[in-house]
Computed example of a mutant assay.
Amino acid sequence: MLKPIDQRRRFRDQLETGTTSGMCDNYLQANLITLPKEYAFDFLLFCQRNPKPCPIIDVLEPGEYQPRVAEADIRTDLPKYRIYKNGKLSEEVYDIKKYWREDFVTFLIGCSFTFEKALLDEGIRLLHQEQQRVVPMYKTNIPCESAGCFEGNMVVSMRALTPEEADRAVDITNNFQTSHGGPVHIGKPEEIGIKDLDKPDYGQSVDFNKEERIPVFWACGVTPQNVCLQAKPEIVISHAPGHMLITDQLEEQ
Results as ranks from 00 to 15, higher is better:
K3G: 01
D6S: 12
Q7A: 14
Q7T: 09
R9V: 02
R9I: 06
D13W: 09
Q14Y: 00
G22A: 11
C24D: 01
N26R: 14
A30V: 12
L32P: 03
I33H: 02
E38A: 11
F41M: 14
F43C: 14
P51V: 12
P51L: 13
C54M: 09
P55K: 14
P62S: 08
P62C: 08
E64S: 14
E71C: 11
A72L: 13
P79G: 04
Y81P: 09
I83Y: 06
I83V: 15
L89D: 00
S90Q: 10
E91Q: 13
V93A: 08
W100E: 04
W100I: 12
R101V: 08
F104I: 07
T106E: 01
F113R: 02
T114G: 02
L119V: 11
L120I: 14
I124F: 01
Q131L: 10
K139P: 00
K139W: 02
C149S: 08
C149R: 08
M154C: 06
M158E: 02
L161Q: 07
L161W: 04
E165G: 06
A166T: 06
D167F: 12
A169L: 09
N174C: 10
N175T: 11
N175V: 09
Q177R: 15
T178V: 15
T178F: 04
G181F: 07
G181S: 04
G182L: 06
H185P: 03
I186E: 00
D196K: 10
D196G: 05
S205T: 11
S205A: 15
W218F: 13
W218N: 06
A219R: 06
V222E: 02
P224M: 05
P224T: 04
C228Y: 00
C228K: 01
L229P: 03
S238Y: 01
L245A: 05
L245G: 03
I246M: 10
D248E: 12
D248W: 11
